[in-house]
Design a protein around this nucleic acid. Structure first.
Lengths: 130, 130
DNA sequence: GATTATTTGCGAAAGGTTCGCATTTTACCT
DNA sequence: AGGTAAAATGCGAACCTTTCGCAAATAATC
């Protein structure tokens, strides 16, 4: 196997660090803006490529926001969960999803639907924005 | 009151009719393609404006597909429900959501999150595509 | 340090969506 | 029917996000 895999670069460390300190979904443009604000000169292309790279590794979750723009957030890859997104501060908190199992079962029984994947999002106000 | 409201036009009737006969989310481009295929000369701008208009009225549901492209489907506005989207044929079937109520309650209790809205999507294979 | 795979920056290009404006169509009123 | 005002349409340009190609820079390996 010829592949030498992942290079550690300045850009990647920065992007990872920005994501690691935000518990909310950020767009590529937003990440790029923060990099420049911090004095880092990183191209938008690199931001996109890095996000793609992180997503391929399973390190980040991606979702299209209401306007269809792609947004990203650091995520535990192993532990499956969903998000409650605050309409005010945008913060996303993890929501465990035990009930989903029975839901999937009833879906199969009542609609004959074989469930492969699902996406669940909550919108409202988190405790501190109440 | 001065507003004369909704004009009934050829384009709108066509677009509504296309949506009414499809139980799946369609993009603006897709609707536009079907119009031309049917011999109707309607501009893409009009398709977008009509979809916006229908969404404002609450007649259609909109969602960004995996690529972030906006897609639309006719929807009963009153009766709240979710969709199970077939990975093969793309058909979306309605899924009632009683369990969601208790879910919302536990969300409030365990996370202090006040739920305003939620979105739930299932992906898999419908009965006929099994 | 030399070598090679990988990453980066830049600008261009490729979608999807919105906008401005002149023109057409619709509804309303006599 | 004919006239009038509001709303809808078509067209092209503009806008925004995302992708791509390629030459230059950087990181890992020896």
């Amino acid at each position: 196997m010829g592949s030498r895999a992942d290079y550690v670069t300045r850009s990647r460390e920065w992007i990872a660090s920005i994501l690691s300190r935000e518990r909310r979904f950020l767009s590529a443009a937003e990440i790029h803006r923060r990099l420049r604000r911090a004095g880092e000169r990183v191209s938008l292309s690199t931001v996109y490529r890095t996000l793609d790279h992180l997503r391929a590794k399973g390190d980040i979750a991606a979702r299209a926001d209401t306007a269809g723009e792609a947004t990203f957030m650091l995520c535990e890859p192993a532990h499956h969960h969903h998000h409650a997104i605050c309409a005010n501060c945008g913060r996303a908190q993890d929501v465990d999803c035990a009930a989903m199992e029975q839901f999937a079962e009833s879906l199969r029984k009542r609609h004959g639907f074989r469930l492969d994947d699902h996406a669940l999002e909550f919108f409202g106000r988190c405790r501190s924005c109440r």
